[in-house]
Amino acid sequence: MDLPKNTFKAALKAGRRQIGLWNTIPDSGIVEMLAGCGYDWLVLDTEHTPIDAERLMPSLQACAPYPVHACVRPGWNDATEIKKLMDIGAQTLIVPYVQSAEEAAAAVAATHYPPHGMRGVGGTHRGSRWGTIPDYVTRAHEETCTIVQVETRAALDALDDILKVERLDGVFIGPADLSASLGHPGDPGHHEVRSAILDATRKIRAAGLAPGILGSDDAFLTEAEAAGALFIAIGVDTVILRGAVAQRRADWP
């Protein structure tokens, strides 16, 4: 058994745009359905959902037969939680609410075995295909993708230092938290927020890392792509579902 290739990491390194979708519905059947919809990547979100590591593993298994990469967002920048997520097979982690270079370095350390980090060696688990991948501990970093979320004014102020962290692969700009931090809660479309996102995106790309964004405003997502965004999430499953269901009801007054 060889080390599974991280197609998402390879695409970002090659500068190929990746279109994604946010999954918040805690059901592996839903995830399997989404996995077959043609997206390049899905975020399996454990930060703002009731999903934990035990409930996440069936969703990772549901994605496995499809040509889509499953990124996982932990609930926090916590080494113990990240260790569990990687042991069940997550290769790409999008770590929320990182506000400094030190916190970004901690996220990288949590996703890498020594000597590159401090991920605990657990022996046989799904990530190592139950111990059948030769030299997994020494090679796992090859296919590990570590992304941090920059979503506050403090994080933007620290961005130059964050971008210098070794083995960091990308930075995701969180529009919702950022808008709140900038004094515009609930208004991620505010011109100050949009400008901050575009400026940060250009800076991230210029530093040789992959910038990411989530949104439903196609015009702004197009601007973000022009600014250099490489991984672009174009919707959230619950928002799309509710919108379609509500519209269908409105079609039959």
Rank of each mutant, 00 (worst) to 15 (best):
A101G: 09
G235K: 06
D199E: 15
A176N: 11
D218A: 14
E225D: 10
G183F: 05
H48W: 11
G122D: 04
T46M: 01
P74E: 10
N6D: 15
A70C: 09
R167Q: 10
D237A: 11
A105T: 07
V72E: 02
L156S: 09
I162N: 08
T138Q: 13
R194E: 09
D45N: 10
A10K: 15
G215L: 02
K83H: 07
D2N: 05
P58S: 04
L159F: 08
K84I: 02
Q149N: 05
G183V: 08
R126K: 10
L230I: 10
I19A: 10
A79P: 03
L85C: 00
R17L: 14
K164V: 07
T7I: 14
R55G: 12
D251N: 12
S59N: 04
D87T: 01
A250N: 03
L159D: 15
E142K: 09
I94Y: 15
T146F: 05
D135A: 06
A10P: 13
E143Q: 08
L93K: 00
I133T: 04
L21R: 03
A200V: 12
R73F: 07
A106G: 03
V137E: 05
I240V: 06
V165G: 03
H69I: 04
C63K: 04
R139C: 01
L12S: 05
C71F: 05
L159A: 13
K5G: 04
L178E: 15
A105C: 06
P74K: 08
A62M: 02
L3H: 05
A219L: 11
T124S: 10
K164Y: 02
L21W: 12
H184N: 07
N23F: 02
D78W: 00
L21H: 08
I173W: 07
K9E: 04
E192Y: 08
P58F: 01
Y66Q: 11
L3T: 10
L178Q: 15
Y66R: 09
I30N: 13
G208L: 05
R126A: 13
P253Q: 13
G117V: 14
A105D: 06
P114I: 03
G208K: 06
G29H: 13
A219C: 10
L221E: 15
H191V: 05
H48S: 12
P114Q: 03
I30A: 12
E47A: 08
I204W: 13
G29F: 14
G15H: 09
G243Q: 15
L230R: 11
H116R: 14
A176M: 09
I234S: 04
C37G: 13
D161W: 03
G212V: 08
L85A: 00
Y66H: 12
P114S: 04
